[in-house]
């Protein structure tokens, strides 16, 4: 028996919004430690890794490890039926081929349930090597989203250059060149507005705007985003999900021919 309950459906809606542009379907691996999802996009350029800890749920029970393959378009249709403040419960029997998603209004006067067919997905689990990153940048998630959106107008690619002074995002195309520099913040009143750079070595990497913009769909989940970079390895873009877990995106760099 698997049962996981969250106080607010809005969190699940935001999580789905953060992954459904990259993935059409995905397997949710449930165990007593929580829910994990790991999947590459169709072109094998990016990977989504979602971790939701069992202790972040209002109620969590998972008697046997369970892999639930879900069509994310179908799940989005179901979540559209929930009000943001509704409680949401996901339930499945062991070895079931369906999952039930139930919404309850705060006053318990409206209860709706949706049974969704599960899919048998040919999933490959990937081992992600531990990396000693040269640069780790923490910055406001909204600012990162704004920069990715703005620079996508000028080029398909963005160059991220990180030094101890700051981080520079550049795009160059037919229109010309765009550069956005963010300096490390001195002192800030609000932690969520800070730009913090931990640098071992300066690093310059090029990435496809299209994927960065897809990652920023996670912005409503978190006030800050963390970018971890190292020469010639995938970028890691991480959004914390308060008291519940995190979503990490991995993006392979572009290299000179």
């Amino acid at each position: 028996m698997f049962e996981a309950r969250l106080g607010q459906a809005t969190i699940l809606k935001k999580i789905l919004d953060a992954i459904k542009d990259l993935l059409n379907e995905a397997t949710f691996d449930c165990s007593d430690s929580g829910i994990q999802l790991q999947a590459m996009d169709n072109s094998h350029v990016s990977l989504v890794s979602l971790t939701l800890r069992s202790d972040g749920f209002d109620k969590f029970r998972c008697d046997r490890n369970l892999s639930m393959g879900m069509n994310l378009g179908s799940m989005a249709k179901i979540l559209k039926c929930a009000n943001n403040e509704d409680n949401v419960t996901m339930k499945a029997q062991d070895n079931a081929d369906t999952v039930t998603i139930m919404f309850e209004s705060a006053n318990q006067e409206k209860v709706s349930d949706y049974e969704m067919k599960l899919m048998n997905l040919d999933q490959e689990h990937l081992g992600i090597p531990e990396t000693d990153f040269s640069c780790v940048v923490r910055m406001p998630a909204m600012e990162f989203a704004r920069i990715c959106r703005d620079l996508a107008q000028f080029s398909e690619s963005v160059v991220i250059c990180c030094t101890k002074e700051g981080v520079k995002f550049s795009a160059s195309g037919d229109v010309g060149t765009a550069n956005i520099k963010l300096a490390q913040t001195g002192s800030v009143d609000k932690e969520e507005e800070a730009v913090i750079i931990e640098m071992q070595e300066p690093v310059t990497l090029t990435f496809a705007c299209r994927y960065l913009n897809a990652f920023t769909k996670a912005t409503p989940l978190s006030t800050q985003v963390q970018l971890s970079m190292c020469a010639d390895v995938p970028l890691v873009v991480e959004y914390a999900i308060k008291d519940l877990g995190h979503i990490r995106y991995y993006l392979a760099p572009k290299i000179e021919d």
């Binding site: 590459m40 072109s43 094998h44 350029v45 990016s46 990977l47 490959e124 689990h125 990937l126 081992g127 992600i128 090597p129 690619s157 090029t206 496809a208 390895v233 995938p234 991995y250 993006l251 392979a252 760099p253 572009k254 290299i255 000179e256 021919d257």
Partner: peptide, 14 residues
């Protein structure tokens, strides 16, 4: 010109 690298080369199949 730049080429998009695939992720497969960085990660190992488990």
């Amino acid at each position: 010109a730049q080429t998009q690298v695939r992720l497969d080369s960085f990660f190992t199949a488990l």
